[in-house]
Amino acid sequence: MMKLRSSPASPFGRKVKLALAILGLKGRVEVEDANTADPSDSLRSQNPLGKIPALILENGDVLYDSAVILEYLDFVAGGGKLFPEGEARFAVLRDQTLADGVMDAAILRIYEKRFKEPKYRDPAWDAYQAAKMERGLAYFEANVPAAPGTAADIDAGTLTLACALGYLDLRFGDSNWRADHPKLAAWLDAFEAAVPAYADTRQPPAPVPDNAPAVLK
Rank of each mutant, 00 (worst) to 15 (best):
K17F: 07
R28V: 00
N59W: 07
L23G: 00
K116D: 04
A77N: 08
V215Y: 11
P204W: 06
G50W: 10
A185R: 05
P84G: 09
R14K: 02
A151K: 07
A131H: 13
E30L: 10
A193Y: 03
S42R: 12
A152K: 13
C163K: 11
R135M: 11
P213R: 09
A179I: 00
A105V: 07
P118F: 05
V76D: 01
K51P: 03
F172V: 01
A186I: 04
A162Q: 01
R114H: 10
D38Q: 00
E30K: 14
A151L: 00
K51E: 14
A206L: 02
A77E: 08
A152E: 14
L184T: 03
D38S: 07
P182H: 07
P48H: 06
A193V: 05
R135I: 03
L57I: 08
P207F: 04
R202V: 12
A54T: 01
C163G: 08
K183Y: 12
D61G: 14
K15C: 15
P39Y: 05
Q129L: 10
L168R: 11
P148T: 07
Y64L: 05
A54C: 04
I22L: 15
E30A: 10
Y139C: 04
L4Y: 11
A130T: 07
I22K: 09
P8C: 02
R178L: 02
L161H: 09
S10F: 04
A194Y: 12
V92I: 05
D104Q: 04
V62P: 08
D41Q: 03
A162K: 05
D200F: 11
A19V: 02
G78Y: 09
Y167F: 15
P11L: 00
D153E: 15
Q96T: 00
S42I: 04
S7G: 10
P209V: 07
I110E: 06
I56F: 00
S40P: 01
A193M: 00
K15N: 14
K3Y: 05
D153W: 11
D61W: 04
A199S: 06
T201P: 03
I107K: 07
G166P: 05
L57E: 13
E30N: 09
P8N: 10
T160D: 00
F90E: 09
D38M: 02
P11N: 05
Q96A: 14
A206S: 13
P48N: 01
A9M: 11
V92A: 08
S7R: 13
D126S: 14
G27F: 10
R114I: 06
R28A: 15
V92K: 00
F191P: 03
V31S: 13
S45V: 09
T36Q: 14
A99K: 02
R109C: 02
T160I: 12
D155Q: 06
R109L: 03
Q203F: 13
K17D: 02
G80W: 09
D200G: 11
E141Y: 12
M103W: 12
L108H: 13
P204V: 07
G50P: 01
Y139G: 10
K113I: 00
L98N: 13
V16F: 08
K119R: 13
K26C: 05
K132Y: 05
K113S: 12
Y167C: 06
L137G: 12
A164V: 00
Y72I: 10
R28S: 07
L184Q: 02
